[in-house]
């Protein structure tokens, strides 16, 4: 990209009122925003009503990275191009330290903004957080209130009893932590 070209900027407003100015190419990583921009509402500040500022910051980080790796993809030797392995490692690092509540907000945001790559990262992370956990651990992690009576819970457990047995699979997972 030549430096004389002035980059077109887009402003996004988070649900808590913070305004972010990003390059149009960054915003366009989000399909929802791309559609809006192509329909020419680029002048206004685009309200992202369901996404708070800290989450939007993370989303923008992701989009910037996507622009960076795709910016020179037409040339044969792109220094930013990643192998499958590097891509995975990057994704893991990007999601590292993201707690359960941030993760939920990120998923909602990437779903609303229609950013497939980020959505996939979020789903992967969510799967790794739930997998191998006891139901109570999952409830604690995501503030799920158990509204079953003990009798009801017992009945549901019995319907697919095999899934609730304590077995080496679970012991192995918890001891590897």
């Amino acid at each position: 990209m030549s430096e004389s070209t002035e980059k077109k900027m887009v402003r996004l407003r988070s649900s808590d009122g913070e305004v972010f100015e990003v390059e149009e190419s960054v915003a366009k990583v989000a399909k929802t925003l791309q559609d809006m921009l192509e329909e020419d509402c680029a002048d206004a500040v685009i309200p992202i009503t369901c996404v708070r500022a800290p989450i939007l910051t993370k989303v923008i980080d992701y989009c910037k990275d996507q622009v960076m790796i795709s910016s020179s993809s037409s040339t044969t030797n792109n220094p930013n191009e990643r192998t499958e392995q590097e891509r995975k490692a990057w994704g893991q690092k990007f999601m590292e330290g993201v707690d359960s509540s941030t993760l939920c907000e990120l998923l909602v945001a990437s779903n609303f903004l229609n950013i497939e790559g980020l959505l996939n990262l979020g789903v992967d992370k969510m799967v790794s957080m739930i997998q191998g956990k006891y139901p109570q651990e999952i409830r604690d992690m995501f503030n799920v209130v158990n509204d079953f009576t003990p009798e009801e819970e017992e009945e549901i457990r019995n319907q697919n009893a095999w899934a609730f047995e304590r077995d080496p699979y679970y012991k192995k997972r918890s001891s590897s932590k």
Binding site: I130, P135, R139, D147, N160
Partner: peptide, 15 residues
């Protein structure tokens, strides 16, 4: 994407 066992186990999280 969850293993089947983990997916089934979500049935007792809540109603």
């Amino acid at each position: 994407w969850l293993p089947l066992r983990d997916a089934v186990r979500t049935s007792i999280l809540s109603r």
